[in-house]
Computed example of a mutant assay.
Amino acid sequence: MNDSKVTRRQVLVLGGITLGVAAVTVAGPGTAWAAAAAPADVTLVPVGASPVVVLPRVGVQPAAFPRQLAVQVRHAGTDLPAGTQVAVAYDPRLYSPLPGAVATAGDRRVRATSAVTTDPKTALTTCTVTFTEALPAGSEPVVVVGTAFPVLYPRDLVVGPVDASAAVGHRHGKPRGRRSLQPGRPHSFGGVATPWGLEVSGVWNRHAWANGKRWYYYPARITLDSVGPGTAPMPASFSVALDPQVVSDVKIVSARLNNKAYDAGARLLSVTRTATLFETRWTTRARLKSGDRLDLGLEVRTRKPSGDLPTVKHPTVALIDMGNHVTQRQTGRTSMSRSDSAWT
């Protein structure tokens, strides 16, 4: 049995580009920025506005965080001298730094270096970007240092994620005036919620032809496991996508819930048939609670191709129509597939 992991949704729901934790400082004695803080017309602003969802823990609101650790430095009336630094601090449980930070001004790359450090007391990571060239007033560079990455079950509930904030100061001084830079929380994120999640796995059968030299896999059993802690908001529903050159029909013939016979009430929602796709979509009666396991037996009718196939649709089983995806946990196994059929 080969159960490939195919992810349909990430817990960190990727949206547009927005601002992370940031501080801007300037280098060089004798510059116009020798004061403890940068001039008032040098400001940091978000780039984009669409946040990502972070699930902190059970019984709290899903949190909104920046998708990308990016910031624009606006300085309409002030030059940025070589040595200007942009420091972006972030929660390493949520973000991954780029191999090298990127700074752009208009359509060109700004010459810059970057260094990443981690504070042992706070566990926060900081990427400090240093411009190695001077920028004239109004160039307004954009700095990108990292992006959110999907955190898989069981580490996907990130307890106490650290809010974003910003401060402005001199290179040799402590940044001042720290303020929150968290993006606005969309109404679609909902209120207090209990996260839930499902894993899809199963058993495959192999159909062979051409004296066993050609074969195709199809699902013989589908298993849905609930990782909780909440109950799935909708009855378990899924699709089965197969190649119509090899498979002519699919039926659900048995169901067991937690190893006991169960009337799953499996109902066929729709059938799609084209020259390259045979897809059936199913729903059941089961709203799976934490720890529940639903096993479904399939009866699949196959065809015997006359020889080689010009192409093949690899088999896929995937969750569908499962309701509140904002609070759905990232199990990394919301679908399964096989890519090792031999058809030519």
Score class of each variant (00 low, 15 high):
7 T>M: 11
23 A>P: 02
26 V>L: 07
29 P>H: 09
52 V>R: 10
52 V>Q: 15
80 L>C: 02
81 P>T: 11
81 P>K: 08
88 V>S: 09
99 P>K: 13
111 R>D: 11
113 T>R: 04
121 K>T: 15
122 T>E: 06
124 L>A: 12
124 L>D: 08
126 T>G: 10
137 A>L: 01
143 V>A: 02
145 V>D: 05
148 A>G: 15
150 P>T: 07
152 L>G: 10
168 V>C: 10
170 H>I: 02
180 S>E: 06
182 Q>A: 14
189 F>I: 03
192 V>M: 04
206 R>E: 14
209 W>R: 01
213 K>E: 15
217 Y>C: 02
218 Y>M: 01
231 T>G: 00
233 P>Y: 11
234 M>A: 13
235 P>N: 09
241 A>C: 06
248 S>P: 00
248 S>Y: 02
248 S>H: 01
249 D>Q: 12
252 I>G: 00
254 S>I: 01
263 D>E: 12
270 S>H: 10
272 T>Q: 14
274 T>L: 03
275 A>M: 05
284 T>S: 15
294 L>P: 01
304 K>P: 00
304 K>D: 09
308 D>G: 14
308 D>F: 02
310 P>F: 03
310 P>I: 05
310 P>K: 08
315 P>A: 09
323 G>S: 09
323 G>Y: 09
325 H>F: 09
328 Q>T: 07
